[in-house]
Write a protein that binds this DNA or RNA. Structure first.
Lengths: 346, 346
DNA sequence: CCGTCAAATGTAAGAGCTTACATTGCACCA
DNA sequence: TGGTGCAATGTAAGCTCTTACATTTGACGG
């Protein structure tokens, strides 16, 4: 079983190499690395010296196979391109780090099939638990997760109707509150820019929130002007231009997230429209961007960092086989900034 | 932890389980999955049915151990919090995806010790190659990489003086060109907001570029007002405020990246300063943000996507044992937008 | 009708680690 | 001085795959 020495410079050193050099058994080396207290100080020093000298790093695959756990969590987010998930994920990672857990991140491009692939990849890599976004995914994905008993948690959502564990906020109610505020200012011609709703429960919920607010005021929700596109600044700008061409022209554009809203603001500037003088614009998520653009965005503030940190804690609890408690509903608030005002002539 | 071995319904199905169900040997199952052409159609169908029925997914660790390669690349970026690396990384991932390679991402928080840990983690996980940012890292990190013969590539830099393979641009020359443009407009009191230079060659190079431009014009580079902080909007704003308190008050603030510049713009607005009327602000990187803020940022445009894509290609070539060619120098340009103008009274 | 050869499949040896269990050695006490 | 018990260490059995090599099967030419 000893490896050939002729390629010793290329091949990674193994436990056995370290053991040989430190003149102990492989078990002792393993213990030195994983449960130092079981090893005498003298031996420990000898082993560490050998590790150092050889530049040894344990082979992860082998370790996983033998130990049957990885101390690795996975997260699959829809996109890394914009900052929607950045802050939450950062907090998630920090909390995991404090607990000695490594985070692997993959992105699904808002594509359920791709997400399923990524879940499979992460599971195969031995992720002990997964953080996912929202509840919308393929049956096969849920199947895999349940079958393998992989603990997982849906973040960025709180849907009382779902039996699945989640941490997040009520996207629908939050958007409804914002829409009610807009309506309360006297706006009668609303428009929405939403992400494709078919496979995105957050987008769907947010959109529905607008309709709910309109109906609550006795308005016809069917009168809402809608543009549906993938999240991006460019798309937000394009959608805004099209909305401004409609008649009656909307006096308030409610965007599915801040990225859209930033695009809308850009388009407005290009078109020479004043915000909120000619038209109001609102966002959702309160990412950093929201405070930077001019005018600053009125948007739904989401407790990103808190969500990330608590998600980590819940998942760790779950992994330990303990009860993480029920799904967590976080509170959102409306960040009132300059982009929202009364309709023109009001 | 989660999976106990005596619980058949919980344990992940193994190759052996699939083999038993399909009434073939484990070798045949493995071949069906990895080299389907070696297996007859009938057998293949039987095996696939078993795979399906059992929800089998190969154990990555075991596969790596046996096959000694992972088709996984790793990337370690300094931060995920802002979008500096997002676009390049996305392109990198897309190109890898086209080649059947999975990307694992980790972030180092601009901390070399942490980066070293992350390198170790990724290498242990069997990353076939690594994408790193810049050339500044610990000796130990380079040691590990060289020892294990892990192909790696430094991106976001092109330092002719470094023998190490890289793809990127000349940060120094790019910033120098921008600074010369600023000076050409008549500015005489420059200020800089830079990231900590000690362990960040890009920040250092950019900063040095400003000094070079000043000297080239016969100015005293020592007169440059400097603020050094970690990249963040908040810090950019704070640094800007402090710079505006200096006398003589700078008429142009050159920021180490667009995030700082966005912060500076915010602070200027709060202070009632007009940009570029009272003070000009420039950025670096030309991330999406640059076009969104008001006024839009004059900044150094970087070909993010091209860099990401070509980085992937080079790394793949390197992994195949072929010659990736020399380090690649990409061209930057100056994106002239509204935030830069002549100094007041000029 | 047999030998040959290729295609299809099987057998079994690792790959590097963890850990249950076994062994050793030594201090301490009766 | 022999027995006890514990701390330190060793032994070796897996963990789940891939693949070199071995075997089986059947078509086909002579």
């Amino acid at each position: 079983m000893p490896r050939q020495r002729d390629d010793a410079t290329t091949a990674a050193p193994t436990l056995e190499d370290v053991a040989a050099r430190a003149r102990v058994s492989t078990a002792t080396v393993s213990r030195t690395l994983n449960s130092p207290t079981l090893v005498s100080a003298a031996t420990r020093a000898r082993v560490m010296a050998a590790v150092e000298a050889l530049g040894y790093a344990p082979n992860f695959g082998a370790r996983v196979m033998a130990a049957r756990r990885t101390n690795t969590f996975g997260a699959i987010i829809p996109t890394m391109e914009n900052a929607i998930f950045a802050r939450g994920l950062q907090a998630f990672q920090e909390e995991l780090g404090r607990n000695g857990i490594t985070l692997l991140v993959a992105s699904s491009s808002y594509d359920p099939a791709l997400e399923e692939d990524q879940i499979r990849a992460l599971v195969a890599r031995g992720a002990d638990a997964l953080l996912l976004i929202g509840h919308d995914r393929t049956e096969a994905a849920y199947d895999l997760l349940d079958r393998r008993r992989i603990p997982y948690l849906a973040a960025w959502v709180h849907d009382p109707a779902s039996p699945r564990l989640s941490i997040g906020f009520d996207n629908r109610a939050a958007m409804q509150a914002l829409a009610e505020k807009v309506l309360g200012l006297g706006h009668r011609h609303l428009a929405a820019i939403t992400a494709p709703r078919a496979q995105n429960d957050r987008a769907r919920a947010r959109f529905d929130g607008i309709g709910a607010a309109m109906r609550a005021r006795g308005q016809d929700a069917g009168a809402l002007a809608v543009e549906e596109m993938a999240y991006s600044i460019e798309n937000g700008a394009a959608a805004f231009r099209r909305l401004m061409a409609r008649r009656p022209r909307p006096t308030a554009v409610l965007c599915g997230n801040d990225v859209f809203a930033a695009g809308a603001l850009m388009a407005a500037r290009e078109m020479g429209l004043s915000v909120p003088g000619d038209v109001s614009v609102t966002g959702f998520d309160d990412i950093e961007l929201a405070g930077i653009v001019t005018p600053a965005l009125t948007t739904v503030h989401v407790p990103h960092r808190q969500m990330g940190r608590r998600a980590a804690q819940m998942l760790i609890t779950l992994c330990a086989g303990k009860d993480p408690g029920p799904s967590v509903k976080l509170e959102t608030s409306i960040a009132c900034r300059a982009s929202l005002g009364p309709p023109p002539g009001a």
